[in-house]
């Protein structure tokens, strides 16, 4: 069993882990990630980021896409958020 990659840089390509599903929770009025024993409740920008994690886009491309939607996107916010979700095994990363 290999060690999961959790370090994120601009070339990382994040995607949802196989056991995680991305859903809109009408009760909470929030997007959530459903794992086997956890529900991860996302805020608006968090949900936008997760929605762009298709395994094809790099982190840099995700940031570029977000710049078209928001003013003053902070790259480091996005990379840190991706790393935190990867550390919780909600995201898988392929680097390079």
């Amino acid at each position: 069993m290999g060690t999961a990659i959790t370090a994120v840089d601009a070339t990382s390509r994040p995607k949802l882990s196989r056991h995680v599903r991305f859903r809109f929770d009408r009760t909470r009025d929030r997007h959530v990630l459903l794992g086997p024993e956890t529900v991860v409740v996302l805020n608006g920008t968090g949900a936008d980021i997760v929605g762009l994690c298709d395994g094809a886009r790099t982190a840099a491309e995700i940031v570029a896409e977000l710049r078209g939607r928001y003013h003053q996107v902070v790259d480091e916010d996005v990379l840190r958020f991706l790393a935190r979700l990867a550390a919780r095994r909600c995201l898988e990363l392929s680097n390079g």
């Binding site: 529900v39 608006g44 928001y70």
Partner: peptide, 30 residues
């Protein structure tokens, strides 16, 4: 007629809250 694009919202730091639940609950929600 000049069109005015809707202003983009300001960036807000992405956040999440993790809630531990029983497996059958996430299966149901899913």
């Amino acid at each position: 007629m000049e069109s005015v694009a809707a202003p983009s919202p300001m960036w807000e730091a992405p956040e999440f809250d993790e809630v531990a639940v029983a497996p059958e609950v996430t299966m149901y929600l899913g």
